[in-house]
Nucleic acid binder design. Structure first.
Lengths: 255, 255
DNA sequence: TTTAATTTGTTCGTATGTATG
DNA sequence: TCATACATACGAACAAATTAA
């Protein structure tokens, strides 16, 4: 007897999604290029307009396409990767599972620590220059608007993540940062001693920068984790804050 | 003059998606519960069925809903979180950016190393029992079918990730493993010296298990990274394999 | 086992808003 | 201003699938 495989009915829009996905991933249509118009796809796939639209909606939801009305230069545009889709998935995890801030910060420490470690090893002069530039900007902005200061802060971490040379780490870092700020961003901006927080942050970032410059990777990662533990510690329970500090110092306590 | 904010036209399906998302995230409808039927939603939202369907398609694409035809007990079912949506996002990153296997393995080492570290600290007896059980099963399956052996292997890593107590790390570990296996899974299954590979894997896993049992977290993480570096090393360029080994030994070389 | 009811899946036709030349 | 090509949205209808009487 032949071995039959279980089948499940394949929906119209699903096979459209699969074909378009494959066309994108195979490089048949590159980011920036455009698909045929909906009416043209109706002809090519031999299905109704609604089915084509549902397939396109699926692909737009997952960030691969973007379409807007009244664009005569073609149909939906293939998008290059953006962390938006990942952000949405992680947000679903955080909100569905009711994750605690403590857990997000541990994850952030894992990713940022590794990013910093790799950045210290692989950094180019150009990276170092951009990190230093972001740090200088932060120092000049101490005492000012938290929104603006935060942008320089983000740039600092972003360049380090880039310098790690690992896109998965870079993207995860970006997402993790967004998740944490989504939970306590407004609380942070309304701190009474904002200027002092900013100054502390600058000092700690400076120490990380120095270790990256000296290519002392383990210590750079340690300081990066410590930075996060101290920065976000006030927003979790005291015993959780202690656990964050212990996790930050993991390598040193082991020696 | 008042400060006007830029606006962008909001699509019909978008505001439907937002409302349903909010209903899910606020706990108004919990996973397992069902939304009203499409025709009922048409009435409630006051839009056409096509718009409702496009919104539902969006939410199904992001994994929050699932609907199937002919179920009189209600409409789309709210799903609990699954890593499927994350897997899809990461796959898009890997394929759009043409990521190399080396990069995936480094990411996997970061996550699995941290998971193992945390597991060694937080493990309960129940975790230890399940890890040991998975390891015993692996040892019995050496020399057998790689598919079956692989399942026990996955269980081993899965329990460790659970024992870490961090869901973000657990999910990332699951996804990262899927990505790597998606790239070299079939290559691995067709190895000539499969039994030897499996035996080596068992030995290394045993060492990790011993360190988790002794709660020596740093060494457990080190061995977990080393396991991956040695296991996947043959599938990347020689100099990349050396880099993986160096990354695995990072803590020890620093001492 | 059959039937009826309810649901999603799919199609067609039509009308409208929007951007480009 | 107009013509054109596009996405957006609506309404009605039928097909297919599932469940329960």
């Amino acid at each position: 007897m032949p071995q039959f495989q279980p089948v499940k009915p394949v929906r119209t829009h699903e096979s459209i999604v699969r074909q378009i996905e494959e066309a994108i991933y195979s490089g048949d249509v590159a980011p920036g290029q455009r698909l045929p118009s909906e009416r043209e796809l109706v002809v090519q796939f031999g299905v109704s307009r609604a089915s084509v639209r549902e397939a396109l909606r699926d692909l737009q939801s997952s960030g691969l396409l973007r379409s807007r009305p009244g664009d005569p230069s073609g149909g939906a545009e293939v998008q290059s990767f953006s962390s938006g889709m990942l952000q949405r998935s992680f947000t679903a995890l955080v909100r569905l599972e009711r994750l605690r801030l403590h857990e997000l910060i541990v994850f952030r420490m894992v990713i940022e620590g590794s990013a910093t470690y790799l950045a210290a090893l692989h950094r180019q002069d150009e990276h170092l220059r951009r990190i230093k530039k972001a740090h200088d900007l932060m120092r000049r902005l101490v005492g000012g608007d938290q929104e603006v200061f935060g942008q320089a802060d983000v740039e600092f971490h972003q360049v380090i993540a880039e310098a790690s040379g690992n896109q998965l780490i870079r993207v995860c870092n970006e997402v993790a940062r967004g998740l944490v700020l989504g939970l306590i961003g407004e609380k942070l901006a309304r701190s009474s001693d904002l200027a002092e927080l900013q100054a502390d942050s600058c000092r700690r970032h400076g120490r990380v920068l120095a270790m990256i410059k000296k290519q002392e990777a383990v210590e750079a990662a340690h300081l990066a984790r410590l930075d996060l533990a101290e920065y976000y510690g006030p927003y979790v329970d005291p015993e959780e804050a202690d656990e964050l500090l212990a996790f930050a110092n993991r390598d040193l306590t082991a020696i």
